[in-house]
Nucleic acid binder design. Sequence first.
DNA 1: GAGTGGTCTAGACCACAAT
DNA 2: TTGTGGTCTAGACCACTCC
Lengths: 251, 251
Amino acid sequence: MRQERDIAVPGLSKAADHRPRYIQVKESVLQRIAAGEWAAGDVLPSELSLAQAYGVAPGTMRKAVDLLVAENLLIRRHGKGTYVTTFEWRSMVWNIFRLEGDDGSRAIPSARVVRHTRGKASAREAARLGVPRGERILRVVRVRHFAQAPIVVELLALPLALFPGMAAGQLDLPPALYEFYAREFGIVIKESEERLRAVAANSEEAGLLDIAEGAPLLEIDRTTLDVRGRVVEWRVSHCHTERHHYRNRGA
Amino acid sequence: MRQERDIAVPGLSKAADHRPRYIQVKESVLQRIAAGEWAAGDVLPSELSLAQAYGVAPGTMRKAVDLLVAENLLIRRHGKGTYVTTFEWRSMVWNIFRLEGDDGSRAIPSARVVRHTRGKASAREAARLGVPRGERILRVVRVRHFAQAPIVVELLALPLALFPGMAAGQLDLPPALYEFYAREFGIVIKESEERLRAVAANSEEAGLLDIAEGAPLLEIDRTTLDVRGRVVEWRVSHCHTERHHYRNRGA
DNA sequence: GAGTGGTCTAGACCACAAT
DNA sequence: TTGTGGTCTAGACCACTCC
């Protein structure tokens, strides 16, 4: 028997939507997370009660949750409930930090801010961040150390509209930025895109990383999107890969 | 009602196996593909008939197939059937070739063999290929061109045990190797692992790629596994990334 | 029309965690 | 003991492809 929904459910249009129900339900849940109804670390209602609220069978609700689990946005804990993933957890499974030591060692490197400036987005910055040219942004240069050795010079560009009050005075950014974004600004990271190439170290990088000018560095050019589809940051990392490498699995 | 299996089904142990049924069924199907019962491009029996053969419910069979579809080993075609993926198709969805032009252009680059030798695996080669030291292997050096420009110098190491008769005389390898492996040697690629770093071009590479010695190159060090878990090749590519980059999505 | 995968339902029972 | 997710069943009907 095909049950009709006659009550409004958040995010589910009552108009004709010919996509599968589990897709519609999944997107509704995603929207409710993006809207802050459930924050990182929160537990969701049980699958059964969600299914009843949405007016779908438990199996359909399960499939919707499956999709969000596959995207690393939710995590199931057997016997306890389904939770919105926190960044600490995501960084373990997710490979945000794909840089590791040649011996396989993995750690979140420390980060020291070299300088930061506030200004208007150039054409290139605006294109990468998906904001109008001239939008106010924050630029940061950091050096990251693995086991006391300087390994990465990192340039960040952030749209200040998403980070109200940031960099009012001095800037003291923690090493794990995405966790910081979530905690302080309610931004939930969803995905990122990276472009890698090899470049030669310029004089400033050579000084910061204690290597020769012109030495080969691995460039990681990354834009990061949150669950609402907004570009949260543009980051260009130049990595000294003499004893480290970037690891990737092709499924 | 819990139905007992009393007939032997390929790959399903009758002994106590406390893993989920859909996992057991999935691995049985995987083994049958690895054994060559179903080759690349073949149609599998319908889900319903497979379910009956395995003595499980259609939903359980479906979940087993779902897993293999998620791993890009099977592909469903609505109204037609479920197929073992061919490499041509995999290379589209799968990002085997993650190198692309800065304008976003993608193409399988041509490949010219510079030289090839047969020999015994060194300690390093043996470790990477997962074979005993001294095992007979084939080494190949190729240059790859994107739009007439030489972009990549590629070193291949292949265990000859997996490629009987290869390189008996002259060697004429096609650009898309994994497809060739499947067609000529029945090897079905499953996954790969890559390590990336930046290196400086040596004199031979500088000559082959028409760049200055010491210029930065992107090194892609890749080992590739087939469905049986065997290492099929070890490949080290040195890429000139002035107008190309390696692209990666973080889910 | 026959056969396939795609969606959806409505339960049952098991395994795990907290009380 | 209660509530949660995890597995499994046994159907129904829809959408697509091919004959």
